[in-house]
C-alpha cells in the first residue's frame, strides 16, 4: 500500500455524491456511506479527485505543501 501523503478536505455542502472520486481514486480512498462521502485515510496526493470533482468539493493538502500531482 502506498504511503499516505495527502490530507483530504471534503466540502459536504458542495458534494453531490456523483461518485467520480470513488471510481477515479487509484487507491480506493473514498466510499459513499449513508448518503455521505467518506475518506479512508489512504490518500497518496495524486490529485485526480480534486481535478475531476465537478463540484469543487475536494481539496487535497499535500505534506510538502505542493499541489503538483504525482500521477
Amino acid at each position: 500500500m502506498a504511503k499516505k501523503k495527502g490530507t483530504v478536505h471534503i466540502d459536504h455542502n458542495r458534494c453531490k455524491l456523483c461518485g467520480i472520486c470513488v471510481s477515479i481514486c487509484p487507491v480506493q480512498n473514498y466510499k459513499i456511506n449513508q448518503h455521505k462521502l467518506k475518506e479512508l485515510g489512504k490518500c497518496i496526493a495524486c490529485m485526480q479527485c480534486e481535478r475531476y470533482c465537478p463540484d469543487m468539493a475536494l481539496i487535497i493538502d499535500t505534506k510538502d505543501g505542493k499541489d503538483t500531482p504525482t500521477g
Binding site: 453531490k16 465537478p54 468539493a57
Partner: peptide, 22 residues
C-alpha cells in the same frame, strides 16, 4: 473567479459542466 457562495451548482451529480467551469 467564481461567486463561491452560489455553490453548489444546480447541475446534476456527475455533470461535466462543473469541470468545464473549473
Amino acid at each position: 473567479y467564481l461567486k463561491q457562495d452560489l455553490l453548489p451548482t444546480q447541475w446534476c451529480p456527475g455533470c461535466g459542466n462543473g469541470i468545464v467551469l473549473k
